[in-house]
Design a protein around this nucleic acid. Structure first.
Lengths: 179, 179
DNA sequence: GTGAACATGTAACAAGTTACATGATTGA
DNA sequence: TCAATCATGTAACTTGTTACATGTTCAC
């Protein structure tokens, strides 16, 4: 799936500027499983405008550049539906954190402890965030499902890290004591 | 984290050929959170050989090309430790499946049902796989932790999909009946 | 005899990220 | 006054993937 499809998907919820699309991607209901940068969003919108998949409306603003609000067209909606009518690529999950934990015996104890707690804090923050989105997702079936999925997975991660923390810290303490 | 670090990490568990590294990445204990293709592994090994991070040993084989078995050097081990001594990048999770489920109202019912069940089957297979790796990970602390993490997360995904399935299918049935 | 697994390697290509360029406003 | 937020856009760069090239053995 490419950035074009991603933008069309966001726009299917309502019109938005490139800037707002990026915000929705990184802060919105879907932040946990999609990602895109300005450098890919803006060109994608320009291309789709030329292809008739979206329309623009310039919103004048004092001082700032005109806000270009994009809206999806019928053609864009059809394009989106078609782009989604394929078997989705397998989920991709990449974790440098887990790679470090796998090889933690090679790393300084303080680093492992710091990385562990940072990761746990980040997961908790993300979980809180999607829990705060719960209400706004309630009335949309797709959003509700996706929100529930995120809560289930992030919740499991947080719980696992909380449970395993003692073991990690204990082995660290033991190793430190043995020195 | 790049492919070089990934290969060094695998090699820190023992010598291996490029082919075997790829197998370990896609079938091994870590398959759920790392990934790499031959097109990136082979060049990485060549570069690291020139940098003195690994050594090679050609294993003659009848018929097949010589198997080039790589082993990590002390310099490579130091390089690996240094590469891992940074704050890890945030976990990246991308899911076209969730994106389709988010927008499922745009998609044909049969497609949603097929995609859902395929995804569930794939998650179950992956979970079974890492459960089958559990024993071989028991005696290595890093592997045990990572294996447990994978089981926790995949288990939560599978359970959620199992629970939500009725709701998805029911809404599909309702929509179909309303036509 | 056919496809999968074993085994290495290259080159063209795709896709997206980072950094740069610009500049006003708003709140601490 | 300094950082953050709003706001768009381009170009160089990174990184890795896909497809190709080659050839054997083993199991069905």
């Amino acid at each position: 799936m490419n950035v074009k499809t991603l933008c069309l998907g966001i726009l299917s919820f309502g019109e938005a500027s490139g800037y707002e699309i990026k915000k929705k991607v990184e802060e919105g209901l879907f932040s946990h499983f999609i990602d895109a940068s300005y450098g890919s969003i803006y060109p994608a919108l320009t291309v789709m405008l030329n292809e008739g998949l979206v329309t623009v409306r310039a919103e004048e603003q004092s001082g700032r550049p005109d806000k270009k609000v994009y809206a999806i067209t019928d053609k864009g909606l059809a394009h989106l539906a078609q782009a989604l009518s394929v078997t989705p690529a397998r989920d991709k999950y990449k974790s440098e954190f887990l790679f470090q934990m796998l090889l933690r015996e090679l790393l300084p104890r303080h680093h492992v402890a710091a990385v562990y707690d940072l990761h746990l804090a980040q997961l908790r923050a993300e979980l809180e965030h999607i829990e705060s989105c719960r209400c706004s997702a309630e009335n949309h079936p797709g959003a509700r499902f996706v929100n529930g999925y995120g809560r289930a997975v992030l919740g499991a991660s947080v719980r696992y890290l909380e449970e395993a923390r003692d073991e990690i810290l204990e082995s660290l303490a033991t190793a430190a004591a043995a020195e």
